[in-house]
Write a protein that binds this DNA or RNA. Structure first.
Lengths: 197, 197
DNA sequence: GACAAAGCGGAACAGCGCTCCGTATCTTAA
DNA sequence: TTAAGATACGGAGCGCTGTTCCGCTTTGTC
């Protein structure tokens, strides 16, 4: 019955109860701090809010990206799963692509500073970039392919590039003169073939 | 003959010769460091390279943006002046807009980290943002208006938004899978009217 | 209850931006 | 030429951040 009773594996004890509790505490504390101060908030602030020491936070989430990913994993997952659903429900593949892009944009702009962080090459954010892209690029690719097959857009655009483009367009403060959604719409419009068949 | 001889103004002596020299030294040192380490390079590094103290650099360039602007002023100016020239030379306003955008993209991607810095809301870069936009938005607006008048694009897009969009698309490392030029092309393509008249 | 193992806290170190003021240098007027 | 005063310089020092490291505490097990 002990965890080590199964053969062929390292005995590896189960994690301690307090460690599990702390991980949860940290997750909710981080979520709160991210909302209040953005994803760049000092690690100390998060640790303080959770009532734990610096060591604890680094043990559970070695890089800042690990923490951010853990906090937003559910939403990224939801976005990924929305792709196929939209493809089935929306009127056309291109319409699905547009709606899906809107979803992604909404996600990014409502997280203060997330889009900025995602392309920062310093601060331990590289893994964030990687996770987001690994999860969402395949979804985007399916939508893109479907739209190409339907003749709604011209081929040649890679999902990776498009995803990064959309992400980049979402960066920046909330200047009312700058509306990422509009530009993303323009970008997608640019995918359409020059001459409709 | 003395600087104070002109009436109606504060006597304000001329700047000292060594100050002028230091300003030049700093400018060239900064340019070198920017190439080597990006525009985020530590201030100390620039000061060291120029062989001056920290105080000197802050006296001449109170914020980091002031230094960056001073270093790249000529190139921004050249880009601004290229706008009207292209409008006259290129085959059509839209072609001019495309070529001008290419110029701007080239400028941004060849300066390591400049595009990233321009969107950062911290680090004293806000003034950079302001300067670039103040100088280039009017130029972009003229190109945009001309293209609209020629019926080559549909109206409704603001130059400010377009400039920021292009700038944002240029952010990020030099991943070969991500080519800003392609996306900017797509974005501009999206400006074209849905049904060519 | 005792003993590892697992986990925790936070002091400590390093890197950075920025300020401040005693000192050095330049300019001008006599 | 020189002395006074304005101007500019240097860099130590402060505060804030990320990250590591190790002695101590808590937990699970026998």
């Amino acid at each position: 019955m002990t965890p080590a009773s199964q053969p062929g594996k390292v005995p590896a004890r189960a994690r301690r109860a307090d460690a599990l509790r702390n991980q949860q505490t940290l997750l909710t504390a981080a979520a709160e701090v991210f909302v209040a101060s953005g994803v760049d908030a000092p690690i100390r602030e998060i640790a303080a809010r959770a009532g734990v020491g610096m060591g604890t936070i680094y043990r559970h989430f070695p890089t800042r990206a690990d923490l951010v990913v853990a906090v937003y994993r559910h939403q990224v997952e939801a976005c990924a799963e929305a792709g196929p659903a939209l493809l089935a429900d929306a009127g056309s593949p291109f319409a699905a692509l547009r709606q899906w892009a809107d979803l992604f944009v909404d996600f990014l702009v409502t997280k203060h500073g997330l889009a900025n962080a995602m392309r920062s090459d310093s601060g331990g954010f590289e893994a964030l970039h990687t996770y987001f892209l690994d999860r969402l690029v395949p979804v985007c690719a399916r939508l893109l392919d479907a739209a190409v097959d339907a003749g709604e857009i011209s081929p040649g655009t890679h999902a990776y590039e498009l995803m990064r483009g959309i992400g980049n367009l979402c960066a920046g403060g909330d200047d009312p003169r700058y509306e990422p959604r509009r530009l993303v719409g323009l970008l997608l419009q640019g995918l359409r073939p020059s001459r409709p068949s």
